[in-house]
Design a binder for these strands. Structure first.
Length: 948
RNA sequence: GGGCGAUUAGCUCAGUUGGCUAGAGCACCUGAUUUACACUCAGGGUGUCGGGGGUUCAAGUCCCUCAUCGCCCACCA
């Protein structure tokens, strides 16, 4: 017995991973003659640690990739990390604040160096943890969103879009975060409901309401709905004088449909600089706009005595002043409204007008299928035309809705960590024809800085999602080529072998949360640049929630289940399986400890099947001749992909049939992204069919070759789901080779009683000096990870049915015995060659004292089989069973009635598929036979009872 | 205001293009068992598939409607 009793994942995982990585089995080969398959891994924040969501996406993608390799693809899973501009930037800014300084004092260069240092220091944890999850990614192609090569791509795309008029610079209202001192895109703004007082103020003849009196200093336009009869006497352009916060103002009447007559008095004043709706009204009517609040969140000179006061402090003071001036009409304290927050850092967003860079989503400047279309139109078309399929489909609707509401994308950020905008400015003196001299900003846009003196680069960086949007292809561009500035973007793509081989990628798997942030933007950028879609299928997974259904959040550390902790306690395979069991695409799931335990048990079940077979290789069974030494079990070299085996017994035929069905089902389910169903098929094959039936059968009539073959095949189909335990078993022994001892002696010693285990969770650490498997050759071919998927086995279906008949006899024997409280009864049979041939098997599995041919009926007749078989139980003892028989009779009768009704329905026999009708007929016959048997048995019972 | 999802066993959830008597894990009950595994085995489920209506030979599945919970988007003076 070489293997320890229970599989202790921590003893093997690091070594197994090292084995894979060293062998190069994860490295894709564009020159391979195999068909290619690729997935671009969503790059996680390089300085963060793995959370359950990350564990989930790695599991799903790893399953797809491993399965693809096994069914014969050259598969590339390209990993990478993200520079997470705002997140990383703000961590370092916070550190600086703690040290009493800030980035402005430090200066740009020093600040960026500091962020880089922070990133360098914290990089690696994530990569290590992804390996711990078993990710079979091609680390030789690891990319980072701030790589030089990716920067080249980012700049090229920016320039291309600029030249096509898709990128422009303009004064627009943007979401300004005064805390992080940057703009953020519309998608990064979240809204939180908050109760705050609503002040109603007297503004000339009107009453207006506001929750933000501090923005009202400059208000000089009064707006109402054109159809509002109450204000019919006023016309657009009418003016009046009135007393306001800091003295008299001249107000102008504006009529605009944006005003809701039902809200308050139906009249409002506008603050175009700090409100999007107001801005739009002002744009429509050509009104003046004035800044009230500066970019630090303090009031400007227009606020008079309130200048330079933070808005929160200023508000009560302003309200007090309004009260004193008798301009405050009323306060509604129960008013709730949504305040805008930055999703990162939760700072309150202040709308501001700012000169920023935007992507125009409505300009028809994209060549798509022979037409000039806008980015919006292309984004819609690729889904509508089926170029990209979204799984689950319901997200297509959500996606369309997002596109329809999409505004121009603000891509410039005022943070320093990221891709700096490739634009330079220079103040130039210009002599106009009238010979007046004035200065003008010249603009230079290019991959490299202009050669002449005096140019200043735009200080802003690009939204992180701008570089992420290029991810599927920028990672496939050959980094060497990007150093050659004579090449155009098209050249770079044309000459990059990886790009030519692996793009478009096959699947993009990610969380539904980032459908807009990332998926949509990859579609936007990639269709525009390459003229092709970035991926063919989008699979979206749901959130992993806590046991109580809450979202795990950093602000509530107790809510977080740490995947690394789970790996250390239960093993990676258990975690992976728990994350896919009973889930469905796009739906949130809860993770509970019991679920992880259940899946750890499955992993252990695989382990023990292997242990049993390992043991059986070299040990004769009771009653078996001790001639194993002479028997020439064919020695098959490790990793040899033997495609088939010879079945002998009915059980052999049955298990090979089950195996084939399971292998096919798992594969088909995975092809269709039905992860949970695939695992379900695997689980029940392994546990119910292989362990509980075939292994048990093998204890009386072993066929070592079939056992070994089924084990090897099982390891293959289980491998994508539970890569570590399956590879560990694969490497531990060759089930065909009785001469080779199990090699896990060290692990066996370590974990024989669960004590003195080596330190766990050391994945990737150099502390592990000796690999358990170091004696093995490291050829790729010897790894389970590079084995091909099992082929369908042809078997004799008649023999399969015979085994099912035996199962029925065995199951019924157990049921009756348990039901009447008898242990180990005898079974008699008459004229039943099948039972006769499998006496020992039926006896052992049926928990019977003996199985014997009888001359006449004796005891209790089994009803579920066509064979004449009786359990040796007297009818008095079996009284309890009578009730069961009667229940069964009723069920049969009900079923028969239903089937007859169905068959007598002409529209059913005419309209339903022929096969189904045929099936129904067969079923009716079977039910009728069964009913007859039951009736006979009940009659026999009644006779017996009478005779007592 | 617009949209999406969920509602199935005590709990957590599967259930594909409608098609056998609706399933799994956990929990629970009864029993077994010193060598593959107590991380085990055998046996045990009386569910109005949220309510109502409709389409169909056939509905957990499709359509309408109502209810409850959750999410997304937009508006919020």
């Amino acid at each position: 017995m070489g293997l320890p009793k229970a599989y202790v994942a921590g003893d093997y995982e690091a070594d197994i991973y090292a084995l894979w990585e060293k062998s190069g089995v994860f490295i894709a080969d564009p020159s391979s003659s195999k068909p290619h398959f690729s997935i671009a891994m969503p790059p996680p924040n390089e300085t963060s640690t793995l959370h359950l969501g990350g564990a989930l996406f790695i599991t799903l993608q790893d399953i797809l990739i491993r399965h693809a390799r096994q069914v014969g693809y050259d598969a590339l899973w390209l990993p990478g990390t993200d520079h997470a501009a705002i997140a990383t930037n703000s961590v370092v800014e916070r550190q600086l604040a703690e040290q009493g300084t800030n980035k402005h004092e430090l200066g740009r260069e020093a600040f960026v160096a500091k962020v880089k240092e922070f990133a360098d220091r914290n990089r690696g944890t994530m990569l290590k943890q992804m390996r711990a999850m078993g990710a079979s990614a091609d680390w030789s192609r690891l990319r980072y969103t701030l790589d030089e090569a990716l920067n080249r791509c980012v700049n090229e795309v920016f320039i291309k879009m600029y030249q096509d008029g898709l990128i422009y610079r303009g004064h627009r209202i943007v979401n300004w975060d005064p805390n992080l001192e940057t703009t953020v895109s519309d998608d990064e703004v979240i809204y939180k409901e908050e109760e705050s007082p609503l002040y109603t103020l007297q503004y000339g003849p009107f009453k207006i309401s506001t929750a933000r009196p501090e923005t009202k200093f400059g208000d000089k336009y009064v707006v109402m709905h054109p159809g509002d009869k109450r204000y019919a006497q006023y016309k657009t352009g009418d003016t009046f004088e009135c007393e306001w916060i800091n003295g008299p103002v001249t107000a102008t009447i504006i009529k605009d449909e944006a005003v809701d007559p039902a809200f308050g008095t139906g009249v409002m004043t506008i603050t175009p600089w700090h409100d999007r709706t107001d801005f739009e009204i002002a744009e429509r009517h050509g009104l003046e706009k004035e800044q009230i609040i500066d970019f630090d969140g303090k009031l400007l000179a227009i606020a008079g005595e309130f200048e330079a006061i933070k808005i929160d402090e200023a508000r009560p003071k302003i309200v007090e002043k309004l009260r004193q001036k008798n301009l405050l009409v009323s306060i509604d304290k129960t008013y709730t409204h949504n305040i805008a927050l930055n999703s990162r850092g939760k700072g309150v967003i202040e709308p501001q007008i700012k000169l920023q860079w935007f992507i125009d989503v409505n300009r028809p400047a994209v060549d798509w299928k022979g037409q000039k279309r806008s980015l919006k139109e292309v984004m819609r078309a690729v889904i509508e035309d089926g170029d990209i399929k979204i799984v689950p489909k319901r997200f297509e609707k959500i996606y369309y809705h997002w596109i329809d509401n999409l505004r121009d994308w603000c891509i410039s950020r005022q943070i320093w960590w990221g891709h700096q905008i490739p634009v330079w400015y220079r103040q130039e003196s210009v002599h106009s024809p009238q010979s007046a001299v004035h200065s003008k900003d010249s603009v230079y846009v290019g991959v490299r800085p202009p050669q002449e003196e005096g140019w200043q680069q735009d200080p802003d960086t690009l939204d992180t999602w701008f570089s992420s949007a290029l991810w599927t292809w920028s990672t496939l561009v050959d980094p060497e080529l990007t150093k050659d500035f004579s090449l155009s973007l098209d050249d770079l793509l044309a000459k990059s072998i990886d790009y030519q081989t692996y793009h478009p990628t096959d699947v993009l798997e990610t969380a539904y949360e980032i459908l807009f942030f990332w998926v949509a933007r990859m579609i936007l950028a990639t269709t525009y640049v390459t003229g092709r879609v970035p991926f063919k299928t989008v699979y979206l997974h749901g959130l992993v929630r806590t046991e109580t259904g809450k979202k795990m959040s950093k602000s509530d550390p107790d809510s977080i289940v740490d995947p690394v902790g789970v790996i250390n306690e239960y093993g990676t395979d258990a975690l992976r399986l728990a994350l896919i069991a009973g889930t469905s695409p796009g739906t949130d799931q809860r993770v509970r400890k019991s679920k992880i335990v259940a899946n750890r048990n499955f992993v252990n079940k695989l382990w023990n099947i292997a242990r049993y077979i390992d043991d059986l290789r070299v040990r004769p069974l009771e009653g078996e001749e001790n001639n194993i030494g002479r028997r020439s079990l064919r020695v098959v070299p490790l990793g040899h992909n033997r495609g088939s085996v010879m079945p002998k017994s009915v059980a052999d035929h049955w298990i090979l049939n089950k195996l084939s069905i399971a292998a096919r089902a798992v594969s088909e389910d995975l092809d269709n992204f039905r992860f949970s169903e695939a695992y379900d098929a695997l689980y029940h094959f392994v546990w119910d069919d292989f362990a509980d039936w075939y292994v048990e059968v093998s204890k009386t009539t072993p066929n070592r070759e079939v056992l070994a073959f089924v084990l090897k095949s099982t390891l293959k189909i289980a491998h994508p789901f539970a890569p570590f335990v399956t590879e560990t078993i694969w490497q531990s022994f060759d089930p065909f080779d009785k001469t080779q001892p199990s090699i896990n002696t060290k692990a066996a010693l370590n974990s024989s009683n669960g004590q003195d285990r080596p330190e766990q969770g050391r994945m990737g650490d150099s502390a592990q000096d000796k690999n358990l498997f170091q004696g093995l050759a490291l050829e790729k071919e010897s790894l389970l990870a590079s084995q091909l998927w099992p082929k369908f086995q042809k078997v004799d279906l008649a023999k399969v049915s015979q085994f099912k008949e035996l199962q029925e006899i065995i199951t019924q024997s157990r049921q009756i015995a348990a039901n009447v409280g008898v242990t180990k009864p005898a079974l008699f049979y008459k004229a039943a060659p099948l039972i006769d041939e499998n006496k020992e098997l039926v006896k052992s599995l049926g928990r019977l004292s003996q199985v014997k041919e009888a001359k006449a009926a004796k005891g209790l007749r089994l009803t579920g089989t066509k064979y004449a078989a009786w359990l040796d139980i007297d009818r008095e003892t079996a009284q309890a069973y009578l009730g069961r028989l009667k229940t069964s009779q009723k069920a049969r009768e009900a079923a028969i009635k239903l089937l007859q009704k169905r068959l007598s329905n002409k529209s059913y026999t005419q309209k339903a598929p022929k096969e189904l009708v045929k099936q129904t007929k067969t079923q009716l016959v079977e039910e009728q036979q069964l009913l007859e048997a039951i009736k006979h048995e009940i009659a026999a019972f009644q006779t017996a009872v009478k005779n007592i």
